[in-house]
């Protein structure tokens, strides 16, 4: 039996990895990811001060919040690209802080991540970008790799762009190729960092439907970080509004939309005035324009 590779249809991992110490994910619990008392800061700036949240298996979960609240940082903490100062993150019952590098890499093979800018490898063409995880982690034949890659590219509508280089793609196309690459290993958890930014309405609709369909048909757990309230509302089962280093509110999009909290109302309805100040901390406007500094 292979570590972490319990999902049906997961490809055979390379030999040496089988010899590593095995830690089995608990695939039966309701919550796939549990975060408790998470504290993290960058320099003197506190990002999280005791964050608690649960991500349910098989659901689309969204992290929303004003800019700079640490949504992307939270994704990086969940994938252990960053290490928290305090608190625990359990994925499938395993505290990810206890994993060594080999175990962490095996856990990451169950993740697919869509980066904000796509993060395609610029020296490889579209086909090789999507084939990259398969070539690195499996011993599939070239014919089978071709089959899998073309299937994934077809799903995002870019089978015809297989021979193009990343530099020849538009922003939206690059994002769709990156999505094909993120799902090529049939992951259990798909993470999307701002997937809707800069997409035209057609691409956005395709991506939104794709996220929902993959979640429902393949049983993937999806995590989305986005500002886009309207799009998130159509796709997410549960949303967390993060503000001030904690979860300010959580619930289904409908629950958030009708919430009484000032902060939630300000964010969901895009109001300039409210608990979140539009202006960054600054001296008095009049004083600065007309005061001594102006001379």
């Amino acid at each position: 039996m292979l570590c972490y590779a319990v999902a049906e249809g997961t490809y055979v991992r390379q030999g040496p990895q089988k010899k590593q110490t095995m830690k089995q994910l608990d695939d039966s619990s309701h919550n796939l990811i549990e975060i408790r008392n998470l504290k993290f800061s960058r320099g003197h700036r506190v990002i999280f001060k005791g964050l608690d949240l649960d991500i349910k298996r098989g659901e689309v979960t969204a992290f929303m919040g004003p800019s700079g609240t640490g949504k992307t940082t939270l994704l990086r903490l969940i994938t252990r690209q960053l290490i928290p100062e305090e608190g625990t993150i359990h994925i499938g019952g395993i505290d990810i802080a206890t994993l060594n590098m080999a175990e962490l890499y095996r856990l990451r093979q169950r993740f697919g991540m869509l980066f904000q800018n796509g993060a395609l490898l610029t020296d490889l063409n579209v086909f090789e970008n999507v084939a990259f995880p398969l070539r690195e982690h499996t011993k599939l034949t070239n014919r089978l790799i071709r089959h899998v890659v073309l299937t994934k590219l077809h799903a995002v509508g870019l089978r015809g762009a297989a021979d193009m280089l990343p530099s020849e793609l538009s922003g939206g196309m690059a994002r769709r190729v990156a999505l094909a690459r993120a799902m090529v290993m049939d992951p259990d958890i798909l993470i999307y960092d701002e997937p809707f930014v800069g997409l035209d309405p057609i691409s956005m609709g395709v991506i939104v439907r794709l996220v929902r369909r993959m979640n429902d048909t393949l049983g993937i757990t999806s995590i989305i970080v986005s500002h886009d309230v309207a799009e998130v509302s159509t796709v997410a089962d549960c949303s967390f509004l993060i503000s001030g280093g904690k979860v300010a509110a959580s619930g289904s999009p409908d629950e958030l939309r009708t919430a009484k909290s000032e902060l939630v109302r300000q964010f969901m309805h895009g109001m300039a005035d409210g608990p979140v100040a539009f202006h960054y901390q600054a001296p008095d406007y009049e004083e600065q324009l007309l005061g001594r500094d102006a001379e």
Binding site: Q81, R108, N117, T122, P133
Partner: peptide, 15 residues
């Protein structure tokens, strides 16, 4: 590659 998250993407692909 680092600035465009390509190295992070590799790490996330367990490479």
């Amino acid at each position: 590659m680092k600035a465009t998250d390509q190295l992070s993407a590799m790490e996330m692909m367990a490479v």
